Simulated scan of single mutants.
Amino acid sequence: MAETYVSGVAGRYATALFELAREAGAIDAVKADLDRFSALIAESDDLKRLVRSPVFSSEEQERAVSAVLAKVGIGGLAGNFFKTVAANRRLFAIEAIIRGFEALAAVERGEVVAEVTVAQPLSDAHAATLKAALDQMTGKSVQLAVTVDPSLLGGLKVKIGSRLVDASLKTKLNSIRTAMKEVR
């Protein structure tokens, strides 16, 4: 496997979980559970608050996470991992941990993850066209991680590894504004 590094607290946790999942032959199962938990965070303001707020004690976080996991049926390696993260008061980093795990899993599968930020949701046809163009550009299978940011106004930003292509209308307007200030 090519060396891939994810840094910081999230990187250490993501790498540890990835190594455990690889040893158990459960990378896909763990990724599915991580995706489900990530979707729960996106859907629930209460869960977001629990994950991000330093007000809750580790016992409260662990109890709440255990209840959520039991309700949605996440157990095994991922379930134990979430409980450990809560017990260690690292829930604030769970979203970065999930992204780190996904990056490691993508490298294991020979894929590249492109972080795409758009002003409006992409249609299936546009997503397929963008994926095909990025596949051709990188020579690898590219998985799109799309987020919507209406402040871009239009266009998109694509980040693959350390390369960023910013073709957003917001950036273009800011460039024009800067150029106009320099003309005066």
Rank of each mutant, 00 (worst) to 15 (best):
T147G: 11
T138E: 07
L104I: 01
L34Y: 02
L47H: 09
L91S: 02
L169G: 07
L40V: 14
V68H: 08
I94E: 01
V107H: 07
P150E: 05
L153N: 05
A105C: 04
V183D: 10
R163E: 13
E182D: 15
D124V: 12
T138H: 02
G75V: 09
S141F: 09
L20Y: 09
A105E: 02
K48V: 08
N88I: 03
G25D: 05
A93C: 09
L77G: 05
R52G: 13
E108L: 04
M180H: 10
I97N: 00
G8S: 06
N80M: 08
A29N: 07
A32G: 10
G73I: 07
A105F: 00
N80D: 14
R36H: 06
S38M: 12
S53R: 05
A21W: 04
T147V: 14
S141C: 10
A29S: 14
G8P: 03
V6W: 00
A145R: 15
A127T: 06
P150I: 04
Y13G: 00
F81N: 01
E43D: 15
D28G: 13
V146G: 03
A145P: 03
Q61R: 15
A2L: 15
L144Y: 01
I74D: 01
G139T: 07
G11M: 01
G73D: 07
A96D: 14
L164A: 08
F92I: 13
G161W: 02
T138V: 06
L152W: 05
P121C: 03
V148Y: 05
R177W: 12
L152Q: 08
L104Q: 00
E62S: 13
A29W: 06
V65K: 03
V9C: 06
E111D: 11
I74N: 02
S57W: 09
V6T: 13
P54N: 04
G100E: 02
S66L: 08
Q61Y: 08
L173G: 12
A10W: 01
V107D: 09
G110L: 09
V65D: 05
Q136C: 10
A24W: 09
H126C: 11
V30I: 04
G139L: 07
V85P: 00
L34R: 00
A96F: 08
I74C: 03
S141A: 15
R52W: 10
I176T: 13
R109S: 12
E43I: 12
G100T: 03
E62A: 14
V30R: 00
P121G: 04
L17Q: 05
D46Y: 12
I94K: 01
A70R: 11
K71W: 09
V65A: 06
Y13Q: 00
A67N: 11
A16Y: 01
D33V: 03
R36F: 06
K31V: 10
E23S: 11
M137F: 15
T15H: 10
S58H: 15
D124M: 09
A133G: 12
A87C: 01
A24D: 13
E95L: 13
L40S: 14
R99W: 10
D46H: 12
Q120I: 13
E59F: 11
I74E: 01
G155I: 02
Q136I: 10
G25L: 07
V107M: 04
A24N: 13
S141Y: 07
Q120M: 13
K157T: 15
K140Q: 14
T129P: 08
A67F: 10
I74W: 01
K157M: 15
V165A: 10
L50I: 09
S162K: 10
N88E: 07
